[in-house]
Structures are given as structure tokens and as C-alpha cells.
Design a protein around this nucleic acid. Structure first.
Lengths: 363, 363
DNA sequence: ATGAAAGCGCTAACAT
DNA sequence: ATGTTAGCGCTTTCAT
């Protein structure tokens, strides 16, 4: 009395109706032991050609593929490099493109893991992800913008890209934050700006401190004192940058900066939105420079002038470094790549200077 | 006689000098069994408060985190959704951003695996990756642009995004390729173009066929016969598009198209480079339209007019769909999202038409 | 409340 | 040439 929905109990053997094909399934169907199947699929010696053939046939028929998990648990290495990120956003995905292009032909596969944000403690996602994957799933790891110092205690090579804590414990790849920031500000100075504000990052992060340092250096070199009112913490994110951006832009008259150097593109873009809301035109009334050159920086109107980090190249170098480490090739601990200024539409000379004291046509 | 390179054999206990901290290490140090440690870290009942406290202290001290691999091997589910891609390129990473933004707050983690290209057979990476991960490492999978039909025989929910074989076996998310292509060509027609070429994708891929269909439909609706010389296979990639692009653009005089609709952005961008090389100005001498709207389409000069696929949204929808499937919520098999034309600088009216036969000033 | 033991799928010694 | 066994790190009955 079975209905059509009931599969006609083909065989109440060990095979569950659902689920994946395991090595035991192959062994049973081929009439050999699991060890033999393992030898066949791994091209080990000691298997008769006829047996191998039969096993391979069953493998093809059943579509068997060894489980990465079970295999890594047993084996020493997996041939997989892990890329640990907090989240897949513009910065990490650009890096990923560079890593991916460099992995071709190396025989390694890539596994990008996003174990950040939700759930546990805000900081420390990198340590947690690393502990969960190292030694079992991945042979080496590239950690993107870790907030904490990574100890290599997990027994696998680790390369940190743009570590927020500065190059310390581990091998690192980053870009020249200070020079990049200085060039951004020098660009504004060259345009004639004098009241240049800085919408900073997070004061606990190395990159933010270095970018602010570059800002200060450029100003001082030009003989301009840094006005504390013109420096705000923006937090790197649109939401955290909102209030400081408003404070900067609502200053009255001559107090208002004619240009802003933001610590990253995301906050620069948000500042441009705030400016638009306040009726401040970019670049006529206000020049804006960002940092990172993520793809999003080209989508604004006008497009954002920014300091480019060579993200693809940084990713590729990080992969090469971690593979060298894996192979025992000694590598320098820190690799720093140069930034470059990308001038687009958001910067222009400042509006005509306000009438000075003693000017003939004042008031 | 030990050199500085020899670590001073700290303790020949069971703990290897290298490698990760395992549950046994914690158990040994805390003086309890591994079962107890497991119970503590998983908040199971039946552990004395004092014991739990002690174990937790050791966990913190040693920085223990359970291995994803070992845990998944034993457990039914892993709370990890896999994203299977052939490679991390602009298309898949944009999707990834959408998937990542939608995963927040769901309690799931993301694992993007790139098991394509190198090594084995060109086709079938998706089947291989799925077999390797399904059932053990990941609870569900989103497969990006699979070339083959995916059977759900792996026992886990699968959603295919932009499947190259057309919506058949599995659940799918894609965009309206035909309408998108038609709108692209209608845009060119509206600008006054009549000789419109098509730099196609790969003829074995569904999306390429649909885009060519849209191209043909638009032309026919306008009463223009499709010139076979104006249709070339571009293969979706810069390298494969090179020769066909040259063939299209080196046609002499009036034979040369005044506009090209390319099957994707990458081949459109390469065609623009070829045009520049040949001294053909875009958009004055030639209009170009792409498809996808990957970030790279904004980096060209002029920026590329293209048909946007809502990639972030498609990724987010794919995640929602696969999570629904996981939770047993019934979902429609196919979800198709609309495309939209993004007009940028690479399209303009055609150059003034060549003198017609019977024109007074002809030759 | 705690621990011993089995077993997830697989590979690698070690028999036979 | 093939099979048996142990064990990777972990969770989970089942005893104690």
C-alpha cells in the first residue's frame, strides 16, 4: 500500500537515503575495503590495476569525492590557505581578488572565512577563527586587518594584512600610511587650502594614528599650526562619522574648513553626503580626500580623490609571503607597499578667500 | 652543543611544541576528562559549577577553541553556509558582499571556497567542491555561476546564482538577461545607431545565449536584420575577447559597427582598450555597452554604460533562500531579479552617417 | 557529577 | 595485493 511518495525500499543497507556518499559506500559497492578505496583515490602503490579500475568506476558512478573535513583531520596538510576576514566588504574583497589571482598555479586552494561581527566578543574574531581552523582545515592563514596581535602559537604560518596594531609579532603586509596621508594633505595645500580638517579613524587603530600623523606632518611642514577644532574622530564607518562630520561642516563662516582629509573612503563618502545635505557643494565650497581607493570611491558625484592602497598587489604579496613561509623560505617580517594619490573630482582650489581685515571693500 | 636554533626541550610531555591546543590539552591541564571539557564549552548540563569555572579558566589561559573540522565531523550541523566559487573575481566578490550583509544576525557563518580552475577538469569544479564540503563542513551552499546542473544528492540545500545551464534542477537566483540585453540595444538604437555589433559570451552558457537573444530581439523589433559578421564569440574574458574584438573593429569604413554590445563588462572593457589602441575614440567613433555593472566598469575612461545586475541583492536573496530551505520553509524554485540600464560615458549618438548612394557629393 | 567508550570519514601503519 | 586496525579532535550516549 505504499504511495508514490514512498520510495520502494530499495535496500535497507547501511546507506542513508539522504546525505553524502562516503568512502564506505564506495567500498561496499565495489566489494573492497575502505583502505583499498583510499589507496586508489590517492594513487598509492599496492593495488591491482583491475581493482583500481573497478573502484574508479564506482567512484565515478556514485560521484564520490573525499570529504575535506575527514581528510584534514587525518592528514598533516590540506593544501588550503585560509583568508580570515571579519566581513566581506570592499576592502577585504579587493584583497581577496589579489590573493586569488596569485594562487593560480600554486596548487593551493583558497578558503575565505568570515567569523566576525555577530555572536561573541567584538575584538578577537581573528584569534577565534584562527584557532578553529589552524592545524586542521588550513595550512596557513592570511588575516585581514586584525585588531589584535596574532601569536603564531597555532603552529601555522600567518601573515597579517594591514594590521591595526602595527607590525609586531607576525609577518605583515601593509602600505605606507604616513606618506599616503601626507601626500593627500600636500595635494590640498598645493591647491591653496589652508583650513584643512581631518576626519580621523579609530584612535585605537594603528592605521588611523599613522594617517593622522601624516596629516600633522604635512601641515607643520607647510608652517600651519594644527587647529584642534579641525580634528575629529570619525571611526572609519559611515554611522560613527556622521556626528563629527556635521560638527566640522556646520562651523560658521571662516571657521569652516575649506577641505577635509578623511581617514578612509567610507567616512569621506559619508561626509560628502552630509555636505550635500547642508547645501555645501563639493568641490566648489569644499574639497574632500579619502583613503583606500575602494571601488565605491568612484561611484560618488563627484568621484572621490583618494589615496590608493595597492590592494590587489598587497593580497598577492601576502599570498606569496605565506607560501614562502610554508615552504621554509625565509622572508622579511614586514613588507610595506607604497600608496599613490588618485586625483578625481572632489578636490579643487578653495573658494575665493574671505575678505581680510583692512581690505578696501570689507563689509 | 645545541645551537641557538635548538629550542631547549621545554617539556617532553604529550603536548607537541608546535600545533594547536586541543581539547585533550585543556582536559589534562584542568585535571578532568575530555568529555567534561566538551560539556563545559557547549554549556551542557551535568557539570559542577566549580569544575566548569576551572575548565573555563584553563580554556582562557590556553586560548582553546574547538576545531571546526573535528566538530563538524561529529556533529550534524555546523552553522556554516558555504559559498562555492570558481575564483574570486569581480562578479563573485560583489555577490559575496550581498551575501555577507544578509548573513548578519542569522547566527550563521560564511565560508567561501574557491576550488576551481587549477588542477582537474575545467568543468565540474562545483560538483567537486560541493562533494568535498557538503554534509561535513557546511550545512548549505550557494554556488556561483555553476556550469553544470547540480543535483541535490549531497543532502544539503543548494541555491545556484546565475547558473550557466539555465534554471533546471536546483533552486536558482538570476537576473533577467533577455530584457537587460534588449534594453541595452534599445538604448543604442535610440541614440541612432544602426550597425550594432555583439561581442558574445560563451555559446555553451545559458546567460550568453539569452543576452544574444535579447540583442536579436531588439534589432528585429526595430526592423534591422542581424548581420552575421557583426556577431562574434567573445568568451566573457579579456584574453578570449581580444581576437574577436579586433575583427569587429578593423572592418573597413562603413562596414565597421558604430556600436558594440558586449556580453559582459570584462569583455566590453577589453574591447575599449583595443579600440584605444586602434585610434578609435569612445564614444565619438564607437559606443560600447557592457553587462553586469561590476565596479571595474566605472574605472574606464569614459566610464562604461552597462546593464546592471543587482548583485548585492541577488546575493542577499540567495542567502535568504538557502536559509529558508534549511529551515524547511518552502520557497519558489526560481527567483529572477530585474536588471537596469546604467548610462555612463561610453555611449553617444553615432558619428555622422557616411554619404549614401545618390548623395550629391559622392566620390 | 564525571568519565569511559564509541564513532563521524578518512589515511597510514601494520598485518596477512 | 588486500584487509585490519588505530587514531586525528570532537561530541554523545551510557555507565559509574
Amino acid at each position: 500500500m505504499s504511495t508514490a511518495a514512498d520510495p520502494p525500499a530499495a535496500g535497507p543497507t547501511t546507506s542513508p537515503p539522504t546525505g553524502r556518499v562516503t568512502i564506505s559506500d564506495v567500498a561496499r559497492v565495489a566489494g573492497v575495503s575502505v583502505a583499498t578505496v583510499s589507496k586508489v583515490v590517492n594513487n598509492r602503490y599496492g593495488v591491482a590495476a583491475s581493482t583500481a579500475e573497478r573502484v574508479l568506476a564506482v567512484v565515478g558512478e556514485l560521484g564520490y569525492e573525499s570529504s575535506l573535513v575527514a581528510r584534514s583531520l587525518r592528514r598533516q596538510s590540506t593544501n588550503v590557505v585560509g583568508v580570515l576576514v571579519a566581513e566581506f566588504e570592499p576592502y577585504s574583497t579587493e584583497l581577496l581578488k589579489g590573493i586569488s589571482s596569485a594562487v593560480g598555479g600554486t596548487g593551493y586552494e583558497l578558503l575565505a572565512y568570515s567569523g566576525g561581527s555577530d555572536g561573541g566578543v567584538p575584538g578577537g574574531w581573528e584569534r577565534r577563527s584562527l584557532s578553529r581552523l589552524a592545524g586542521t582545515l588550513i595550512d596557513a592563514a592570511i588575516v585581514v586587518t586584525p585588531t589584535m596581535v596574532m601569536s603564531e602559537a597555532n603552529g601555522i604560518p600567518v601573515v597579517a594584512v594591514d594590521p591595526h596594531t602595527g607590525p609586531e609579532g607576525t609577518h605583515t603586509v601593509d602600505s605606507d600610511n604616513v606618506t599616503g596621508a601626507r601626500e593627500a594633505v600636500e595635494h590640498l595645500l598645493g591647491l591653496g587650502h589652508r583650513r584643512i580638517a581631518h576626519l580621523g579613524g579609530r584612535s585605537d587603530l594603528q592605521s588611523a594614528r599613522l594617517r593622522e600623523l601624516g596629516y600633522r606632518e604635512a601641515l607643520e611642514a607647510a608652517g600651519i599650526a594644527v587647529d584642534p577644532d579641525l580634528v575629529r574622530v570619525g571611526g572609519y564607518r559611515p554611522d560613527t562619522a556622521d556626528t563629527p562630520a556635521r560638527e566640522l561642516l556646520t562651523a560658521s563662516g571662516a571657521e569652516r574648513p575649506t577641505a577635509v582629509f578623511a581617514a578612509n573612503d567610507l567616512s569621506a563618502i559619508h561626509l560628502m553626503e552630509v555636505a550635500a545635505e547642508l547645501g555645501i557643494r563639493v568641490p566648489q565650497d569644499l574639497s574632500v580626500v579619502g583613503f583606500d581607493n575602494v571601488p565605491e570611491s568612484m561611484t560618488t558625484t563627484p568621484a572621490l580623490t583618494t589615496v590608493a592602497q595597492p590592494l590587489h598587489q598587497m593580497g598577492a604579496e601576502a599570498l606569496r609571503m605565506v607560501l614562502d613561509l610554508l615552504g621554509g623560505t625565509p622572508r622579511e617580517q614586514h613588507l610595506r607597499l607604497p600608496t599613490s594619490l588618485v586625483v578625481r573630482g572632489s578636490t579643487a582650489p578653495p573658494p575665493s578667500p574671505p575678505p581680510e581685515v583692512g581690505n578696501s571693500s570689507a563689509t
